[in-house]
């Protein structure tokens, strides 16, 4: 356990991107949350660690570290399972052709492979509702774009290295864009604003243009 300034502690569980390590991170999150320790304001799971953010006016770093140390997190059982989420995708992204070429596949095969793979939400970051989903099949793993785009449209389905993701809002971005979803990934008007949570299990589902348009207008009505 290491301090991250005087407002957070970081619990490390490994040094690589790996489902088993992520499972321990999520279990630790659930165990710390269940303990209901005073002064904790946020629990942030990341690939290999759990950040415990606290209010320093309420509890000291060393005191909190001692209390967390007594929770015996190493033995923490896997917590609640993540929810299963399906994300419809129209595979027509501007980089689909280039990704297909790099993978030695047809664009249609890239779409099928991307949609056939189950993904795990390792963590959220970068933007509200931006989930890092892994792991991509080996053949689809590409380095980031050399020249990041200044504007990636919201709903863009993208991939880079061993991760895939959906851009929740318009932003700059250096990932390869292979498609788009009509779903809204982050809606601040909802009590639970993010479609995806750390630990969720995600499947993408290929849809056609007509279905995309229909789901888009549904989204506007809700």
């Amino acid at each position: 356990m290491e301090p991250l300034g005087d407002t957070a502690l970081v619990l490390d569980f490994g040094d690589r991107v790996d489902r088993a390590i992520s499972a321990r991170v999520m279990a630790a999150r659930d165990a710390v949350a269940a303990a209901g320790l005073e002064g904790i304001v946020d629990l942030v799971p990341t690939f290999c660690s759990l950040a415990v953010h606290f209010a320093p006016e309420q509890i000291g770093s060393a005191d909190l570290a001692a209390r967390i140390g007594m929770l015996e997190l190493a033995e923490a059982a896997a917590g609640r399972p993540g929810q299963a989420v399906r994300i419809p995708v129209l595979y027509d992204g501007p980089d689909l052709g280039a990704v297909a070429q790099a993978a030695g596949l047809s664009p249609d095969e890239v779409a099928k492979l991307h949609a056939a793979t189950p993904y795990h939400v390792y963590m959220l970051g970068f933007l509200p509702g931006f989930a890092y989903l892994g792991d991509l099949p080996e053949s689809l793993r590409l380095p980031r774009l050399k020249e990041p785009r200044t504007r990636v449209p919201p709903g863009s389905v993208a991939l880079a290295e061993q991760m895939t993701a959906v851009y929740p809002v318009q932003s700059p971005g250096g990932w390869h864009l292979i498609g788009r979803t009509p779903l809204i990934l982050f809606d601040h008007r909802k009590d639970s604003p993010s479609l995806l949570q750390p630990g969720d299990e995600v499947r993408f589902e290929a849809i056609g243009e007509a279905e995309f348009e229909r789901l888009s207008s549904d989204g506007e009505l809700s």
Partner: peptide, 28 residues
């Protein structure tokens, strides 16, 4: 491997010139 950030963190990217994070910083 990306991990959590806090306002006040000083991160050093490949340019070797540091970035001091403030209240709207990315969470990771």
């Amino acid at each position: 491997i990306s991990d959590a950030t806090v306002p006040g963190a000083i991160q050093v990217p490949g340019s070797s010139q540091p970035i001091l994070l403030l209240k709207d910083c990315q969470t990771t």
